[in-house]
Nucleic acid binder design. Structure first.
Lengths: 156, 156
DNA sequence: AAAACTATACTTAGGCT
DNA sequence: TAGCCTAAGTATAGTTT
């Protein structure tokens, strides 16, 4: 009766995706809660819903804020500060090289995204979409571009 | 043989708690990854380890940062939401194109910076400097690299 | 201490209402 | 659309190596 496939990929069917999202969201809440309870540690999960537009936060926004602050202050710690200067410079160069590589990769990715979107627009491929689908599309484009936006704004 | 109890409470035994933490941490990673893949949404989990080491972030610090930024700026009103969808998409594409241009420019700049610094290192240009001068140079390179690093870090 | 094992509890895709 | 149901698949507590 029940056939379950193992496809770890984007669920294109809207209804199925929503159903899966809600189930898994619930499961994830539970897991996070269990982990915090069993091990008595601060933890949070932040998930933006693809449908309700409301972003969901666990265990609650207050706790999440604390955890985020802890995380952000934690990331400020420079684990290299005790290394000799020369070694430090070498490390920084290597690190910078890696990050530049990533930057280039993201750059290419953005290029692809934009050309895709431009083609989509030029060919009026969404002309036949329903209002719902169009809204969803616009939201995803918005999201993608906001990511680009966020990246670039911090560049000075 | 295997008896499993259902006790949802703090595990006082250190070894057992650590084992459980590691197992569940792994499970949680998987769940978050699956959710983001299946539903194509940004999501993250931040968990601080009870055993001293590092704070753990899923799916990765970069994604977490994005999600956190989105979460923190979530309450901002989107002034474009009243624009028609089609016009909105066009605006976003134009905006994205301009920003990609800037991104490319900055990318080139970072490349130059890094190649300069790499040459400085590779050619051992500071080989004959006094300890004092070397220290000063290292400090300045350090500072420069931190600037570069800071810029690149925010791209993640 | 960490890794493998495994029985069992839990999660969830798909079907149905 | 959402909620229930159940089999199939997954995660993990306790145990062993």
């Amino acid at each position: 009766m029940t056939r379950r496939k193992v496809k770890l990929a984007f669920i294109s069917d809207n209804a199925a995706r929503k159903a899966s999202f809600n189930k898994r969201k619930k499961g994830l809440i539970k897991k996070v809660t269990e982990l915090t309870t069993l091990c008595d540690i601060p933890a949070c999960a932040i998930i933006s819903s693809p449908f309700g537009s409301q972003m969901e936060v666990w265990p609650n926004p207050e706790e999440a804020k604390k955890v985020i602050e802890r995380y952000q202050s934690y990331s400020l710690i420079d684990e290299n500060k005790n290394v000799s200067h020369e070694r430090y410079i070498m490390q920084m160069i290597a690190k910078g090289r890696d990050k530049l590589k990533k930057l280039k990769h993201d750059n290419r990715e953005q290029e692809l995204n934009l050309s895709m979107l431009r083609n989509l627009k030029n060919n009026n491929l969404y002309e036949d979409l329903t209002a719902e689908e169009l809204k969803d599309l616009a939201k995803r484009v918005d999201k993608k571009l906001k990511e680009v936006d966020g990246k670039i704004d911090t560049l000075d």
